[in-house]
Design a protein around this nucleic acid. Structure first.
Length: 424
RNA sequence: GGAGAGUUGGCCGAGAGGCUGAAGGCGCUCCCCUGCUAAGGGAGUAUGGGUUAAUCACUCAUCGAGGGUUCGAAUCCCUCACUCUCCGCCA
């Protein structure tokens, strides 16, 4: 949720900045709502005040044994007008709330203005894409051996966009998640959480998935949502709370499955396990003091990078342009890992600073000794990393001519000492 | 799934139709006293919104959420959510 003050005081500029994000704010509509709101609210509140005043005097008059009938007559006249005024105010406020709930965050000044992913800007690269002296296979081809990656069985069980892993593939997948969690908890200062995978609508709204993106999520019959990312439960842990400044920063990590409908991505990434309805992710979330959120974003991106560096997987870091960012973010770095079979970099992590956008939706605040009023915290989230995609990256980057796959040194301890898998 | 109890400010806790935005305590802030420490005395201390250039100003809302009764609701009624206890079931 944007600061209502900037919509009131700086409407034109805000509309322009929203346009950079591909969002058209109906300025005239908003202005008219705002104007109506003001008139009706003042009217309602003054009627309310009048009624309360008279009601109180009725109490006093009764206690004094006076005749209250004249006062009752007077207050009766207010009733209908007040009710009508209240209804009107409610309707206006509901409409304004809807607009604010559907309005994305503003892009930070440091974010390049652009339309889509083609306008994202590379920030840095790490590692050299390895050259192979043989024809490289993609992860699907590599996974066919020993049926380690069995798309057909998954399709039979559940439909398209599901994956079944067996044997060493499943073990490697598990090893990756364990390794990531351990890195974040022992080296990067995050506390590990185990969280619910089903959340209510309120929680989904707090982090920005609802109401606008209802179609992207799976919903249960009793109206709970399967989490699309652990960001949702983790971030909402501070919903409706006033923290002490000393409690900040809060750094949380969790390994969870993520569920996404992937509505509107028909035909995209249909081969292999790049885009799935269900995938594993290790997520990082930080709740920080507003002065430090941009530093925290750099730090958190570094934490995700550290995983790739430990796995010796080449990657590049992109800063997303205004038009390509997610709804709640003010600035996002995508980390893209090198996939030799596609001869391209593919997203494996996304780290975002949401500043006070989610905090306002969730009512997450903190109190500092210097400032009397509670202030909004800033929230950040980042993948560290998407486990399925990391598996793909390991398979493709560590493949050998004969189709077996070397186990990255950092993972060997998690693989029972194995140095190579997928041997024919 | 069944039966019962509960949900009040940062925390604990009173409150039973008007004088309650809410006693009291804890915590916190400021002041006084006390040669350290402990203790004592006084004052202050909810959140959100609106009006305003801004406020020491005025005002509205909020006692789990949403409805209702009433001139007036933390207090009465209804629905829902959550917590706790007991029973049942279950990994």
């Amino acid at each position: 949720m944007l600061d209502p003050q900037i919509l009131r005081n700086d409407l034109e500029q805000t509309a322009t900045r929203l346009k950079h994000r591909g969002y058209d704010l109906d300025v005239t509509h908003w202005q008219s709502l705002e104007q109506q709101r003001k008139t009706v609210q003042i009217e309602t509140e003054s009627l309310q005040n009048k009624r309360t005043t008279i009601s109180k005097s009725i109490g006093k008059a009764k206690a004094a044994g006076e005749d209250v009938q004249p006062l009752l007559d007077e207050v009766a006249a207010i009733g209908d007008t007040l009710d009508a005024s209240k209804e009107q105010l409610k309707a206006i406020q509901a409409e304004m709330e809807l607009v604010t709930l559907y309005t994305p965050n503003l892009a930070h000044e440091s974010v390049p203005v652009g339309k889509d992913e083609d306008d994202n800007v590379e920030v840095r690269q790490w590692g050299e894409p390895k050259s192979f002296d043989f024809e490289v296979k993609d992860h699907v081809a590599l996974g066919e051996r020993r049926q380690g990656l069995d798309a057909e069985s998954a399709a039979n069980l559940s439909g398209s966009r599901f994956t079944l892993l067996t044997g060493e593939m499943a073990q490697l997948h598990r090893a990756l998640a364990q390794f990531m969690l351990d890195q974040h908890t022992t080296h990067h200062g995050y506390k590990e959480y185990y969280v619910p995978y089903l959340v209510n609508a309120q929680t989904m709204q707090g982090s920005g998935q609802l109401p606008k993106f209802a179609d992207d999520a799976f919903i249960t019959e009793d109206e709970r949502y399967l989490i699309p990312t652990a960001e949702v439960p983790l971030t909402n842990l501070v919903a409706d709370t006033i923290l002490e400044e000393a409690e900040l920063p809060i750094k949380m990590t969790a390994h969870t499955p993520c569920f996404r409908r992937e509505a509107g991505s028909y035909g995209k990434d249909t081969r292999g396990m790049i885009r799935q309805h269900q995938f594993e992710k290790v997520e990082m979330v930080q709740v920080v003091h507003p002065d430090h959120s941009f530093d925290a974003l750099e730090e958190m991106t570094g934490h995700a990078e550290a995983i790739l560096q430990a796995l010796e997987l080449p990657y590049r870091v992109m800063v997303l342009c205004s038009g390509d960012m997610g709804f709640s973010a003010t600035k996002t770095y995508d980390i893209e890992v090198w996939l030799p079979a596609q001869k391209t970099y593919r997203e494996i992590s996304s780290c975002s600073n949401c500043v006070d956008f989610q905090a306002r939706r969730m009512k997450a605040r903190f109190r500092s000794p210097e400032v009397k009023k509670p202030q909004w915290v800033h929230t950040l989230n980042g993948s560290g990393l998407a486990v399925g995609r990391t598996l793909i990256a390991v398979l493709e980057n560590y493949q050998q001519k004969d189709g077996c796959v070397l186990v990255p040194e950092a993972l060997q301890g998690y693989m029972g000492g194995k140095t190579v898998i997928n041997v024919a």
